[in-house]
Design a protein around this nucleic acid. Structure first.
Lengths: 241, 241
DNA sequence: AGTGAACTCCATGCATGCAAGAAGCGCCAT
DNA sequence: ATGGCGCTTCTTGCATGCATGGAGTTCACT
């Protein structure tokens, strides 16, 4: 069943990918014509793709003013981390009860790989495997809706997480937290698995918040329009509450 | 700031509303031309609206085959309830710590109104106030992202929840559960508030699951193209907004 | 009669055209 | 020089046109 993908879907995926991978920075203007030319189509599928991304919160479309990559301020990022924590926590809870033996084996394998890469020391390589680790747990929840939802929030946060692991010692701590989670999962302890996972994600939020309040602005580097980006990029340490 | 709303956004909201209110049933075909005529526009904004709804999971667009209102099977509904439980639980947890005095007063007022309507006995009227009750707690979380996310999941579930409260005694139990939640919230006990709210939502899932396993299937035929029953439901000119 | 295939028709996907609104710019006045 | 104002231009939002592919129908064949 060769499901034929429409141009607009392809574009939506490509653009989402650009945003998640940090190739399209927050605040960057997404010009319909430019994109249309770049992808060799007309503006119509581009517009439809942008509408889809807007509906998912990746871009913002201001009427008559075009689309820009959504720039989250610190507060919004922390808000998303709060959501992320409970969603991943639920994944872990359900996974503790529902993972098949094969999935458990998978989890162990990926976790072992994480440990290996943690020692190896390249945060970016670890980052990729870390993603796979979490994906295994999403799948282990056997809740497809949850899986998608969690992945979506993760993707929305990804531009703001890339540098997380570059913090000194963060990789080592991360893999240790994984280890605790894995243990709870394999022992089939849903409560503990959920709690540990929530804490694991929560720590990332905290660590980000520290990071931000130390440096004023990390790397706000807008592409085409010289100033637009910074507004959204992590700027004011307006810590909520 | 009179933000000018585009046609496509209006359409998206109107259609989402139709779906949530049960005027557009799962499986129903959404014909671009018909909608365009009904709303007095061309197909373009209709298409963009459908793309947005598709991105949010309200409709499914099969290439070259048009858009249909997504029909969730029992399993998917239960999956969404699992998500809903933790999201609402988080709302309650955060609200317990963050609600302002004014918001607490609001909560009490709405809760009192719920109690009154519960005795009055009309489930549909109670349903509306019940929604407001939960909305107050969403807002009390002081987490905008969470608020939107929770509302989105709630909306996706709404076609499947409308009849929930018609179950015998469900309204009374619901309001009792609310009462417990309110107490925890006002006492500022985040853990208890979260736990109670999770249970409150979880019960709805269970109750639905009972309901479904008793009766064969609620209403529409989901996956297999159920033909154009649409003319009837969407035929009302009351759709415009 | 049942099955299968080709044909027709039509909805969708995409391209293009056009009008309205916003951003940028230059001119004038203070 | 600076601030305000009108104009130009460009982009977006929407309408329309056209080609593709699917679904239903009809007809031939077994």
């Amino acid at each position: 069943m060769a499901l034929p993908e429409t141009r607009s879907e392809q574009l939506a995926r490509a653009l989402e990918d650009d945003i998640c991978a940090g190739r399209a920075l927050p605040g960057m203007r997404l010009d319909e014509q430019v994109l249309a030319q770049r992808f060799g189509t007309s503006r119509t599928p581009v517009r439809e793709a942008l509408k889809m991304l807007a509906a998912q919160g990746f871009v913002e479309i201001r009427p008559r003013q075009g689309a820009v990559v959504v720039g989250l301020d610190v507060r919004q990022v922390l808000e998303l981390f709060e959501i992320m924590a409970v969603l991943e926590g639920l994944c872990a809870r359900l996974a503790a009860r529902r993972m098949t033996p094969a999935e458990r084996a998978d989890l162990l394998a990926v976790h072992a790989e994480c440990q290996r890469l943690a020692v190896a020391g390249d945060p970016d390589v670890y980052y990729a495997m870390n993603t796979r680790f979490h994906e295994v747990i999403y799948a282990g929840s056997h809740n497809r809706q949850l899986e998608e939802e969690t992945r979506r929030v993760r993707n929305r946060l990804s531009p703001y997480r890339r540098n997380q692991l570059h913090q000194l010692g963060r990789v080592a701590k991360s893999v240790q937290e994984h280890d605790d989670v894995v243990r709870a999962l394999l022992e089939g302890d849903p409560d503990r698995a959920e709690t540990l996972m929530r804490r694991h994600i929560g720590i990332q939020g905290d660590s980000l918040s520290d990071f931000v309040s130390n440096m004023s602005t990390p790397q706000a580097a807008p592409q085409t329009p010289p100033q637009a980006a910074l507004a959204g990029a992590l700027g004011r340490p307006t810590m909520a509450r």
